[in-house]
Design a protein around this nucleic acid. Structure first.
Lengths: 147, 147
DNA sequence: CATAAATCCGACCGACTAGCTAGGAATTGA
DNA sequence: TCAATTCCTAGCTAGTCGGTCGGATTTATG
């Protein structure tokens, strides 16, 4: 019952991208170095993010990737589901799976669905933009201490 | 990002126990048969539930297990954490782990902590007693259809 | 006391996943 | 042409998940 590091890497990469002033595409190599993430691994996650329509990427020399939307328009939920698949997707509630034996009136199925709903609701309410600005606040607060 | 079947089995077993009128201990074998759960596997989960203080068990002939508290006093969260360990326990936020590189001001760590909080809050608000009564309602509704 | 019934303990096992590494094809700016 | 970069696919290692099993221990009952 935990999120994978893929999602952490993905979020960090998107935050990094959103924090860059430049409009030019940024290379995976560069992000990986800055965020201390295994390069070839991050590459794969970025590809997944592209397939999910969250980033654009340009191949070839001078290529790289950039956000496909405004940071405020990309939710954490989207990132997680792009990299980890559906959140809290128990076999019991995934339509394809071998249905609950209790089928129609299974209270546990309801419990899972409610949990899923709560979690998705929260994760869907936080955007990359939010994370960036929170990070800004924290960094600011940190500076006041060091003064 | 999903709950294991252990937790499903555990919940089903506790619901089963709570639904039994008898005060006598019920054997794992019996529950397993009724709930269609692999017997020896359920046995292990029941042992875990005992270690967590959620059920009492009596060994020997005529032995079995029974709820250690009223169904209303056992939350779903307790059951899940007894069988699956801490909910949403990312390395990032588990104290022992190799701390977040961003350490103090990591927005992702906050995000995980908030998610964890929301989920635990909900799961902690539902008791075995709730599940039993919901099941009763559903069964009742089902009956009216068959009339 | 003997026996059957039950929990308890720990080892094991096959399938799957997570986190990564690697090779190389395809694309593109200089 | 060449170097940089993404893209695609395969693989690899360590760990987890769902489950089985043998057998030790406890206990009511005949």
């Amino acid at each position: 019952m935990k999120f994978s590091v893929k999602t952490e890497y993905g979020l960090r990469a998107l935050i990094d991208l959103a924090s860059q002033a430049t409009r030019k595409p940024v290379g995976a190599r560069e992000i990986a170095a800055r965020q201390d993430i295994p390069e070839r691994f991050l590459e794969q996650q970025i590809t997944a993010l592209r397939k999910a329509g969250l980033v654009n990427s340009q191949r070839g020399a001078g290529g790289g990737c950039s956000l496909a939307r405004l940071p405020e328009a990309i939710t954490v939920l989207e990132v997680i589901e792009a990299l980890d698949g559906p959140v809290m997707n128990m076999d019991c509630i995934s339509q394809g799976g071998s249905d609950c034996r209790q089928s129609a009136h299974c209270v546990i199925q309801d419990l899972w669905l409610q949990s899923q709903l709560k979690l998705r609701e929260y994760l869907g309410s936080v955007s990359i933009g939010d994370l960036v600005s929170r990070q800004g606040e924290k960094a600011g607060a940190g500076l006041t201490y060091t003064l």
